[in-house]
Amino acid sequence: MELLTQNTDKWAGLRSIGVVESVRRIGDKITIATRYYLNSFISNAEKLAMAVRSHWSIENNLHWVLNVAFNEDDCPVHKDNAPENLVRLRQISLNLLSQEKTAKIGVKNKRLKAAWDNKYLAKVLGI
């Protein structure tokens, strides 16, 4: 209890703690995952569920774009810090390509266009 009273300033924005238990069934295999959330809002089950779904929707959409535009799932790099470094570079690239509005094509095609056209690459990079 002493630990909680010593560090109260670090938890000034904490309004609620939530727990979500997810059950996933693939064929005959069932897995259960429990996730805990520290919230800056006063929560009830409906509000927490909406926040969690919103978070995972953003995550899933981002992963889908990264996989389609950059073939992220097919990357053979799995050693040391290289996978995380490449993820960050892909995310930066995705942000830059998404901000470029003159070409009315998808992210994957913008990426290819930037690879083929140095002028377009300079425009994407803002130089």
Score class of each variant (00 low, 15 high):
Lys119Phe: 06
Leu96Arg: 02
Asn109Ala: 08
Asn118Ser: 14
Phe41Cys: 12
Gln99Met: 10
Val68Tyr: 09
Asp80His: 10
Ala115Leu: 07
Lys110His: 01
Lys47His: 03
Asn61Trp: 08
Ile58Trp: 06
Ser43Thr: 03
Asp80Thr: 13
Leu38Val: 10
Gly27Ala: 05
Met1Cys: 11
Tyr37Trp: 15
Val23Gly: 14
Glu59Gln: 01
Arg15Gln: 12
Asp28Asn: 12
Lys104Trp: 06
Asp117Gln: 07
Asp74Asn: 04
Tyr37Pro: 03
Ser43Lys: 01
Leu121Met: 12
Ile32Leu: 11
Ile26His: 15
Ile92Thr: 09
Ser16His: 06
Arg25Gly: 02
Asn118Leu: 14
Ser54Glu: 12
Gly106Glu: 07
Lys10Cys: 14
Ala115Gly: 06
Glu84Asn: 07
Lys101Tyr: 07
Ser16Asn: 02
Ala82Asp: 10
Lys104Cys: 03
Ser16Trp: 01
Leu4Ile: 10
Val20Ile: 11
Lys79Val: 15
Gly126Tyr: 06
Leu125Gly: 03
Thr102Arg: 15
Glu46Tyr: 09
Cys75His: 03
Asn44Thr: 04
Glu59Asn: 00
Asn71Gly: 07
Ile105Leu: 04
Ala114Ile: 10
Glu59Pro: 00
Ala115Asn: 06
Lys110Val: 04
Lys110Leu: 05
Gln6Tyr: 01
Leu14Asp: 06
Val19His: 12
Leu97Gln: 01
Thr102Trp: 08
His63Ile: 01
Asn118Gln: 15
Glu100Trp: 00
Ala82Ser: 13
Glu21Lys: 10
Leu96Tyr: 00
